[in-house]
Amino acid sequence: MDILIQLIANGVLLGGVFALISIGLTLIFGIVRVVNFAHGELLMVGLYATWLLSAKLGIHPYLAAVPLAIAFFFLGALMQRAIIQPLMNADPHIQIFATVGIGTALANGALMIFSADLRSVDVPWARQATDLFGLASVSRGNLVAFAVSGIATTGLILFLRRTHLGRAIRAVAQNRYAAPLMGIDVNRIYAITFGIGAGCVGLAAAVLAPLYPAFPTVGSFFVLTAFVVVVLGGMGSLEGAVIGALIIGLVESLAGYYVAPDLKEVVYFLIFLGILIVRPAGLFGVRGAE
């Protein structure tokens, strides 16, 4: 088997994982104009929740995916209503303190409750390799995560384009002054958007749990990449985030092999800087165009 094709396959699948985590962050940033620094910690909570459901109650992680996404929707909406909403008109610095504070509290809470040990969900089926047209070999769990990511991002993009609620969400991003004049409850849209962003994380956690263990700081492991993806994609463009995620996935995979595993982050930050020099607004960025 050609190693290049294998690396590309790994990269694309990894990109799918990044996409699933990044779209929620992109959506929240694009619509609510708040950077959710607790996004990674929400993923961490999701991974622990999946682990608890699986290890203690014997529920298969994939079965937990939809209920977890729904539960996280309400968690996200609640977080917006209780903590972010009172700060919507405050200085952006204060919003940053708030979301960083939520993240830190969640990470330390997890450390207290679960200790620093790794908690893995063992799904033997997901660990097995499967053959991709005789060209590459990838784990089934990775394929599932990629497929779920594809369905979720496509569904979200269609939802935003085709439904009344989706249009209202975009309307709030494009003109906050005019949206209420259409009868749109802007604060409700903020809560729903936060909910959808968190729901994506809940979904991601369930399909990633068979691949990645839960530990208190697992959030920061993913979220840095997610921030790179959001900026690369154009701050709020979902399509841009998906393309950005695939680029980062491919770069990680290829650079990890051809350059050096320890240097792969250096390579993708260089590409990141290069793209931003050529296109300061990101790949798909037009201010307010989401």
Partner: peptide, 17 residues
């Protein structure tokens, strides 16, 4: 105060939200 990155049709549909 239109929604600049939406089509005219989408703007009108939002009027009937």
């Amino acid at each position: 105060q239109l929604f600049p990155f939406m089509t005219v049709r989408e703007n009108l549909m939002l009027g009937g939200f």
